[in-house]
Design a protein around this nucleic acid. Structure first.
Lengths: 230, 230
DNA sequence: TCAAAAGTGTTCTCCCTACACCCATGG
DNA sequence: CCATGGGTGTAGGGAGAACACTTTTGA
């Protein structure tokens, strides 16, 4: 039962992947956490993840764990850091390769699995297991850098969205405030948004235009090289 | 001799660190390579690196290997990616955590160690061992992103340098050309350079001012949040 | 009729860009 | 004296920032 059959000439660390899953509810940035059912840190919340198999790359492992623990498939994930403090796991030496994922929040309902999974707004995240607090900070830092080169909204917003939602997203990620009119002008200027004929009524006050991302225009723009300035 | 005494319940990959060391000779960006003395890929050039010890973090491991293989100490290193293709090493499953280092080229003379080490200009890098070609491409990509948020010149240039050297550095990293006058204005505008009283004679034609980086001003600027625009 | 949200245009300023001339030196 | 490299200023254009009024609708 505690049989140890995999032997090496030199000591090897265990390797896991963990995935910080970002979602956006239209107002606030959220992360998906799962509650640990076993020791160590039983009952604590943590990012979904687990041990890497020997025949899969880290990316494949991260996607597999995501599927197993949250049901998510085909998410956009990006590796951002390996955490390797020798004491970060009380069981044995574990190095984790951390990814972040950007998903449309409605693709995942919390707690649809054996594990309890739930969305938490950034400022309501409880103390996490292992060094996952640090992992979250680092993920946020990297997401903030990424947003300057990639329109992350593609992944986080629903197909159709209002300009205000897009602005809220940028404000939530970067933790800044923009002038409504200037923001609209700037975003339209990139020509990666399509203004739809439809409108919606996000508040009971007045209807607002819906937009969608134009993937083609974006790809063209990106090939020429561009920067999103904020 | 092939005794395998480190045993685990589940298979564990080996973990190494590799370090892409960038230097700048005043004109071209260079990388430091070591020639492998053992199989696999014996005789091929590769980035310095090696197996992680169980009581050190990846960063410590990368710094140790750097010291052992090139004599470099206290370099500025930054982790940028974990490479984990299951077949990237023919011996066994090896995951490598890759770092890049920015160093003043005169701090390291090639071949000062048991291993042969040498500087190669970017466009003269020979085919490398393992997946190190891919590692180099990725390192360059990350360095190019980094330069937008950090004045990487700090680490790559000598204490005192000319404006032309600084411009050459930016041009080498980003592979673009700038207008001499506009570049000077832009750099001085950040107030992170100190123009020294001294001059130098880089070519026998005319003497040129020397500058140094002002770390204090830079730290102030960075705290307020800034972007280097290029 | 009032409050809340959304849509829209103008002005000003600053920074980026393009561009040309002078000076010092060595050959 | 000429070729090479370095130092410097200006004029024009474009993009970001600041800013206010109108419309719609539900309460």
């Amino acid at each position: 039962m505690d049989e140890k059959k995999f032997c090496y000439k030199y000591p090897h660390p265990a390797v896991t992947t963990d995935c910080v899953i970002f979602g956006f509810d239209g107002t606030r940035l959220q992360v998906l956490l799962v509650q640990r059912g076993i020791e160590p840190y039983k009952g604590r919340w943590a990012f979904p993840g687990g041990f890497l198999k020997m025949d899969e790359s880290c990316e494949q492992g991260a996607l597999r764990e995501l599927q197993e623990e949250t049901g998510l498939t085909g998410a956009y994930i990006e590796q951002f850091h390996a955490f390797s403090d020798p004491n970060r796991d009380p069981r044995e030496r574990v190095i984790t390769i951390a990814y972040y994922a950007l998903v449309k929040i409605q693709q995942v309902q919390g707690g649809d699995d054996a594990d309890r999974a739930d969305w938490f707004a950034l400022d309501e995240v409880p103390p996490l297991a292992f060094d996952h607090d640090m992992i979250l900070r680092e993920a946020l830092k990297r997401l903030r850098e990424r947003i300057h080169f990639e329109p992350v909204g593609f992944e986080l917003l629903p197909e159709k969205f209002t300009m205000k939602q897009l602005q809220n997203l940028y404000e939530a990620i970067l933790d800044v405030r923009f002038d409504r009119r200037n923001f609209t002008k700037k975003m339209l200027h990139f020509n990666i948004l399509t203004q739809l004929d439809e409108t919606t009524r996000p508040t009971p006050k007045r209807e607002a235009f819906l937009y969608s991302f134009n993937q083609e225009s974006y790809n063209e723009l990106k090939q020429k090289g561009f920067r999103l300035e904020f």
